[in-house]
Amino acid sequence: MTVLLIALGAAIGAPMRYLTDRFVQSRHDSVFPWGTLTVNVLGSLLLGLLAGLPANAPLTALLGTGFCGALTTYSTFSYETLRLAQTGARFYAAMNVLASVVAGLGAAAVGLLLAQAFS
Rank of each mutant, 00 (worst) to 15 (best):
45 L>G: 03
87 T>Y: 02
84 L>V: 04
87 T>V: 01
107 A>T: 02
13 G>D: 01
88 G>R: 08
29 D>V: 14
98 L>H: 09
110 V>M: 07
5 L>S: 05
119 S>Y: 11
20 T>W: 04
71 L>T: 01
119 S>E: 10
91 F>Y: 15
94 A>M: 11
99 A>V: 11
106 G>A: 09
51 A>V: 03
26 S>V: 10
64 G>D: 03
102 V>N: 11
80 E>D: 10
76 T>H: 14
90 R>F: 05
109 A>P: 02
90 R>A: 08
89 A>G: 06
82 L>R: 13
22 R>D: 14
109 A>D: 11
32 F>C: 05
78 S>H: 08
47 L>Q: 01
37 L>F: 10
8 L>S: 08
102 V>I: 13
85 A>K: 03
114 L>G: 12
101 V>A: 02
1 M>W: 07
90 R>T: 09
20 T>F: 00
113 L>D: 05
63 L>N: 01
110 V>W: 08
64 G>F: 00
25 Q>V: 04
107 A>L: 10
50 L>E: 01
119 S>C: 12
49 L>F: 08
39 V>H: 06
66 G>K: 07
54 P>W: 02
110 V>P: 06
29 D>T: 13
40 N>A: 06
53 L>H: 14
75 S>V: 10
76 T>W: 07
114 L>Q: 10
57 A>Q: 13
29 D>H: 15
117 A>L: 12
3 V>I: 09
47 L>D: 00
30 S>K: 06
37 L>D: 05
15 P>T: 06
92 Y>Q: 15
98 L>G: 03
8 L>I: 13
56 N>H: 14
94 A>D: 02
70 A>E: 01
114 L>Y: 00
27 R>I: 08
4 L>M: 12
65 T>N: 05
31 V>R: 15
116 Q>V: 14
79 Y>I: 08
110 V>C: 10
6 I>D: 02
99 A>E: 07
50 L>R: 05
42 L>D: 01
52 G>V: 15
108 A>N: 03
105 L>Q: 12
68 C>H: 10
61 A>C: 06
18 Y>T: 11
97 V>A: 11
32 F>E: 05
57 A>L: 07
59 L>I: 06
85 A>I: 08
19 L>F: 15
82 L>G: 06
67 F>A: 02
45 L>I: 05
86 Q>H: 12
5 L>W: 04
45 L>F: 14
